[in-house]
């Protein structure tokens, strides 16, 4: 087929182009929050002493970190779905949550005597954290990968990793309402491992599914 012949066929295909990316992202984000919330409330629910917990700084700080991660990774993922996106410009977004975590860890190390550090880091519930953050994040990740597939990311694996981070941020935000361990030492260790698991899954999933 000659290139001009191909152009004739393309120009004759006047059926509606795909949904706009704004619409797709809006749908993916709402769907992700609803599904993550559903899994969370059906399987875990908030911790019983949540009313008292919201008065403590450490509990609230968990949400600052996880919401910052979710928002920044989601914004970066949206940009990465444009083919001409300059991915290097996204790095500042991705530093926000890690910097917050590091600041939290530093303050915690200053505030607590060193013989309590290990106990705070190990916490009471690390296995639950490693189980439920990926579990809650699975549906959001799938929706984000579908949205990326509709877009045209020039680096599928990288954009999939961003999808994993965003899904991890959402999942961690819900999970934080259940988790009794509020120390930044715990968050920096176990939340990070769980979110990185989703990130890896996102990168692999995108390599397989986000092709165009």
């Amino acid at each position: 087929m000659d290139t001009n012949d191909l152009i004739k066929a393309l120009a004759a295909d006047t059926r509606r182009p795909g949904l706009s990316m704004n619409t797709v992202w809006l749908g993916a984000a709402s769907g992700a929050l609803v599904l993550a919330g559903l899994v969370f409330f059906m399987m875990l629910g908030p911790r019983p002493d949540i009313a008292a917990a919201v008065e403590t700084l450490r509990f609230l700080f968990k949400f600052v970190v996880t919401i910052a991660l979710a928002a920044a990774a989601f914004a970066a993922m949206r940009v990465a779905a444009w083919p001409e996106a300059e991915l290097r410009k996204l790095l500042p977004y991705l530093c926000i949550a890690p910097v917050l975590v590091l600041v939290g860890v530093a303050l915690e190390l200053i505030a607590l005597p060193s013989d309590t550090w290990a106990a705070k880091l190990i916490g009471t519930n690390s296995l639950l954290c490693l189980t439920f953050i990926p579990l809650i994040g699975l549906a959001p990740l799938a929706l984000f990968l579908l949205a990326l597939r509709h877009g045209a990311p020039s680096r599928p694996a990288f954009s999939g990793a961003l999808a994993g981070l965003a899904a991890g941020g959402i999942a961690a935000t819900f999970y934080a309402a259940h988790c009794p361990d509020d120390s930044p030492l715990f968050v920096a260790t176990w939340y990070t491992i769980a979110v990185l698991g989703l990130t890896l899954l996102g990168a692999i999933g995108a390599r397989l599914a986000v092709r165009w």
Partner: peptide, 9 residues
Amino acid sequence: LAVHVKRHT
């Protein structure tokens, strides 16, 4: 062809 199917991006 890719421009065509991805013109919404």
